[in-house]
């Protein structure tokens, strides 16, 4: 958690291999890792739902789900062409799994907020992810959709996938998280198990009323 401009999204992008860290290191299973490209992070099992969802409006839902990792097959033994049939099928399954009414062949341009989010979330289900980062996935959507996203987070947890949830909404965080970390002005000021803290303390840490906790 953290105030607007605290550096949450930037941290997400560093972990996802979009920006190089100016200092510090990323440990995965205790081993230091270096990601130069988003694909590096993906190979290490890290998937991201970006705050602005990172969708191309002019492409279909399925094309967006597979963006950057299109499934190809050999054609006439030499040309590697897109396997659109497979990608549509897989996207349809993923949307069904997410209980979304998104249709794989629709252009993202024509979609509503919840459907757009489903497209971005479906991406994280393509590969065998071990860590999923979600940057404000519950911002600006309806109450029912928030419940669905939280439900999804619980399902991911039950599958043994680590979820890093970035959110402004205190109730969401306390509903699904095990540990809370607070970021202020680009620095970590607290990291506590949910059971040992309270919304009041977290609010204080976010605003700076409480300087930091060990």
């Amino acid at each position: 958690m953290g105030d607007n401009g605290a550096g949450k999204s930037t941290l997400v992008k560093i972990i996802a291999g979009n920006f190089p860290p100016s200092s510090g290191e990323i440990l995965l299973d205790g081993r230091p890792v270096h990601f130069h490209w988003p694909t590096d992070a993906r190979h290490a099992g890290i998937e991201v739902v970006y705050q602005d969802l990172a969708l191309c409006d002019n492409l279909t839902a399925a094309a967006n789900v597979f963006l950057g990792r299109e499934v190809r097959r050999s054609f006439a033994g030499m040309f590697r062409c897109l396997d659109n049939a497979y990608m549509y099928q897989r996207a349809r399954e993923l949307f069904a799994e997410l209980k979304s009414d998104t249709r794989p062949a629709d252009l993202v341009r024509t979609m509503l907020g919840g459907q757009r989010r489903a497209v971005a979330i479906a991406r994280t289900r393509l590969a065998r992810a071990r860590t999923v980062l979600m940057d404000e996935p519950t911002a600006a959507i309806s109450v029912r959709q928030v419940a669905e996203v939280l439900d999804l987070i619980r399902r991911l947890r039950d599958q043994g996938i680590a979820v890093i949830l970035i959110s402004h909404r205190m109730p969401d965080v306390f509903a699904v998280c095990d540990r809370i970390m607070v970021l202020r002005r680009g620095r970590k000021v607290a990291e506590k198990p949910v059971a040992q803290t309270s919304p009041e303390e977290i609010t204080g840490l976010i605003t700076g009323a409480i300087e930091r906790v060990p």
Binding site: P38, R42, D52, A54, L59, G68, R69, E70, F75, R80
Partner: peptide, 24 residues
Amino acid sequence: NFTAWGRHLYAIGGNEQAARLTGV
């Protein structure tokens, strides 16, 4: 229409930032 190269051209024109973030 049928290659990842073509798909990526459209993706870059549609939302270059998104294309970068997703590893294009």
